[in-house]
Computed example of a mutant assay.
Amino acid sequence: MKVAVIGTTGYGGGELIRVLHNHPFFQIHSIHSTRDEMPITEEFPHLESIFEDSLKPVNPDIIGEEADLVFLATPSGVSGKLAEAFIEKDIQVIDLSGDLRMKEPSEYEKWYKHDSVQKQTLSKAVYGLSEWNKESIQKAKLLANPGCYPTATLLGLGPVASAGIIDPKGIIIDGKSGVSGAGKSLTKTSAFAEMNDNFRIYKVNQHQHIPEIEQQLKFWDESIQPVTFSTHLIPITRGIMITAYVQLNQDMNTAELLELYHENYRNQPFVRIRKQGQFPSVKEVAGSNFCDIGIDLDQRTGRLTIVSVIDNLMKGAAGQAVQNANIMNGLDEKAGLNFIPIYP
C-alpha cells in the first residue's frame, strides 16, 4: 500500500518514517510539509543514505489520487482541515492530532482553543484505542489516533473501569512525560537550561487530554465523574509514566485484579502485565510500541495503584498509528512494529 505522511518534520512524523521504512506492507510514497520543498535529511540528518526523499507541498487532490493511506502528523487546528479535505476521497486517513478525538465540538473548542471540524466529520471518525476498539477500527476510513497521555492512562484504567468495580468519584491520575512530548519547537519550558536537573508540573487542571480521558471512561462507565489529571515534564527525551489511584467498590485482592488485567489483555501483543510486586519503568519500553502495566491494591485503604508506561512517540503516537493502520487493513497488528525496546 502506498502511504503519504503529512507533517514529517516533527518528532511524530520522524517516528512514522522510522517505523514505515521497514514495514512489510506499507511503502512511503510521499512525504509532505507546509514548509519549503527540501530533502528530509536537512531536518533529520540521521536519515542520510537511508531515506532521502524530499518534502512535497500538501495537495489533497494529488495525494488522494496517488496514495492509499495518509497519516496526518500535523498540529491540532491544521489536521482537522486536512481530514475534511480527504473525507470524500477513496483514501484512509489517520490523524495523530487531537482534532478528531472529541465527539462534541464545544468540548474540543473549550480545551484546544481552535474551531472544531464539522460534527458530521467527527461522527465518521473512529477513536483508535487499539486494544479496546478493534472492531470499529477494522471498518474505519477516518481514524483519530489517541493522545499519548490518554493511551497510557486508558490502557491502565480500562480493565477496572469497564468492569464497573471502581468508585466513580475521586479518580486521580498523575502523569510524567519526557520533553519530546512538548514537540520540536523550542520553548522556555523545554529548553535544556530549564529542564536539566529539573522537574516541572504544567497545565494544572487545564490539560487538553482531560476531556479525551473522561470521554472514554464514561463510555465504559457512565457514572464516572470528572477526574483529577496532573502532568509533569521530566528531564528525559522520551517516555511517559502514568500513576493512577482509584478506590475499589468491592472486596478484592491484588492477585484477583491481576487476573482481570491478564484476561483483558490476553490476546493484545503490545500490553505486558507485570507480576505481583513488580512495576515498569519508562526505559523498559523505549523505542517500542509496548505498554507495560503494574498494579497493587493497598488493603488498608482499599485503593488501587496503577502504573502504566509507554514511549510517547511510539505507543503514544506513531507506533499506535501504524498499529491502527494494520488493523484497518486486516494485517497482523504487529507488522512493522515488532521492535525490542532500546535498553539501557
Rank of each mutant, 00 (worst) to 15 (best):
residue 297 L to G: 02
residue 173 I to D: 15
residue 257 L to N: 12
residue 339 F to N: 14
residue 301 T to I: 05
residue 266 R to E: 14
residue 47 L to C: 03
residue 308 S to H: 10
residue 243 T to I: 14
residue 336 G to A: 04
residue 127 Y to S: 06
residue 166 I to C: 13
residue 93 V to Y: 07
residue 264 N to D: 11
residue 185 S to P: 00
residue 212 E to P: 01
residue 102 M to I: 00
residue 274 R to T: 15
residue 320 Q to D: 01
residue 24 P to S: 00
residue 3 V to D: 02
residue 312 N to E: 09
residue 255 A to V: 12
residue 41 T to Q: 06
residue 104 E to G: 04
residue 144 A to Q: 07
residue 319 G to H: 00
residue 50 I to V: 12
residue 311 D to L: 08
residue 123 S to W: 09
residue 169 K to V: 14
residue 183 G to M: 09
residue 286 A to P: 06
residue 77 G to K: 07
residue 124 K to F: 11
residue 341 P to S: 09
residue 109 E to L: 03
residue 331 L to K: 02
residue 18 R to A: 02
residue 299 Q to F: 06
residue 296 D to T: 09
residue 143 L to V: 04
residue 64 G to C: 05
residue 291 C to L: 11
residue 189 T to P: 14
residue 317 A to R: 07
residue 260 L to G: 11
residue 344 P to Y: 14
residue 65 E to Q: 14
residue 128 G to W: 00
residue 207 H to P: 08
residue 127 Y to C: 03
residue 229 F to D: 07
residue 34 T to P: 01
residue 81 K to F: 10
residue 218 K to R: 15
residue 176 K to M: 14
residue 214 E to C: 00
residue 147 G to C: 01
residue 148 C to A: 15
residue 28 I to R: 00
residue 293 I to E: 04
residue 55 L to A: 04
residue 115 D to C: 00
residue 143 L to C: 05
residue 200 R to K: 14
residue 299 Q to M: 09
residue 272 R to H: 14
residue 170 G to F: 13
residue 102 M to N: 10
residue 37 E to S: 13
residue 2 K to I: 01
residue 5 V to D: 03
residue 304 L to K: 09
residue 323 Q to E: 07
residue 206 Q to R: 08
residue 61 D to C: 06
residue 318 A to Q: 06
residue 198 N to S: 15
residue 279 F to S: 12
residue 274 R to G: 12
residue 63 I to T: 02
residue 210 I to G: 00
residue 81 K to A: 11
residue 291 C to K: 00
residue 320 Q to E: 03
residue 23 H to I: 03
residue 42 E to I: 07
residue 297 L to Q: 03
residue 250 Q to I: 11
residue 15 E to P: 00
residue 234 I to M: 12
residue 132 W to D: 12
residue 102 M to C: 09
residue 54 S to C: 08
residue 230 S to E: 12
residue 282 V to L: 09
residue 212 E to N: 03
